[in-house]
Amino acid sequence: MKARQVNVFYGDKQALFDVDIDIMEHAVTSLIGPSGCGKSTFLRCLNRMNDVVDICRVQGSIEMEGEDIYDPKVDVVHLRARVGMVFQKPNPFPKSIYENIAYGPKIHGIVRNKAECDELVETSLRKAGLWEEAKDRLDQPGTGLSGGQQQRLCIARAIAVQPEVILMDEPCSALDPIATAKIEDLIHELRENYTIVIVTHSMQQAARVSQKTAFFHLGDLIEYGETETIFTNPKDEKTQGYITGRFG
C-alpha cells in the first residue's frame, strides 16, 4: 500500500498532515508515537473505517496494488475484506466460536457448502493458534473464551475472509503478558502470508515484532524506516526524544 499527501480532518481540526508512506508487503509495520498523535487515525484510513465518522474528511491518495482505495467506484465492503482489522479490545460476535469464523466467508460467498465452511473454520483457527483450545467447543459462545483467546478468535475471524492486509490497533493493550506473548508469536507467523500494520504504545513490542516503524507526532509522520535503525540510530531529534523517554 502507498499513501501520498494524506490529510485527515475531524470537522475543523486537522489530525494528519501530508503523510507519505510505503507499506511493505509481507512485513510488519509498527506505528508508534504519543497518544493523540494520529497513528490510529492513519491506521483507520487504510480500510476506510474513518468513513463511519460523519465529521471525518480524508484528502490525498492511498493505493493498494495501484488502485486508489478512496475512488468512488471502490466497494468498501470488499475493501474491508481485503484489509482486515483487529481492534484494541477483543470483540467477538455474540455467536458460537464456529459462527464467529464462518459468518464473514458465508456473506462474501467464499464457501459454497458446509464441508468447505468446516475446513475454513479449522484452517483459520489453526493459523490463529487457537484450534487445539477451541476444537471441542466450537458450538460454545466466543465470548466464553479468555481475553487472549478472544483476541486470537478475532484474528482468526479476520483471516477467514482471506485478506491481504491485517490492521491491528493496539491488539495487546487489554491482555496480560502471557497472552501478549502468544499474540506477538502469532504476528511473526502471520507475516509470511499477510502484510501487517500494528499501532502500539509499547516500543518494546514494536522492536520485537516489526521490520518497519513509523513515528508520528502531533499529526506529522516524523520518521519512517527499518525498525532497528529507528530504535538505535534515529535521524530526527523528536524520534530520539520519544524513544529515550524524554516525552511521550
Rank of each mutant, 00 (worst) to 15 (best):
A179Y: 08
N50W: 02
K238I: 09
K106H: 04
A206P: 04
H108Y: 13
Q162Y: 01
R157A: 05
K135Y: 15
L16W: 13
I62S: 05
E133A: 11
E65G: 14
V86P: 06
R246L: 09
P94L: 00
V28T: 11
K238W: 10
G109L: 13
K114F: 09
D20K: 05
Y194L: 14
F93S: 09
P92A: 08
S30R: 04
L167W: 00
T180K: 12
Q140L: 08
G104M: 10
V74K: 09
G36D: 13
Q162G: 08
F215W: 02
P105L: 12
P34M: 03
S202W: 02
N91L: 11
I110N: 02
A174K: 05
E133P: 07
F87Q: 08
A181L: 14
I196A: 11
I166N: 03
Q140I: 03
L138I: 04
V161M: 06
G142R: 11
A27Q: 14
E132N: 06
R126Q: 15
S61Y: 01
Q140E: 15
G248D: 04
V86E: 00
N7F: 02
A181V: 05
I198D: 03
G109F: 08
M24S: 08
E116I: 02
G104H: 01
T41E: 08
C37H: 12
P92S: 06
I230P: 00
Q140Y: 15
G33I: 06
C56G: 15
I178E: 14
P234G: 09
D51R: 12
T123F: 10
E184K: 12
S35F: 00
L221G: 00
R48I: 15
T227Y: 07
P171K: 13
V8E: 15
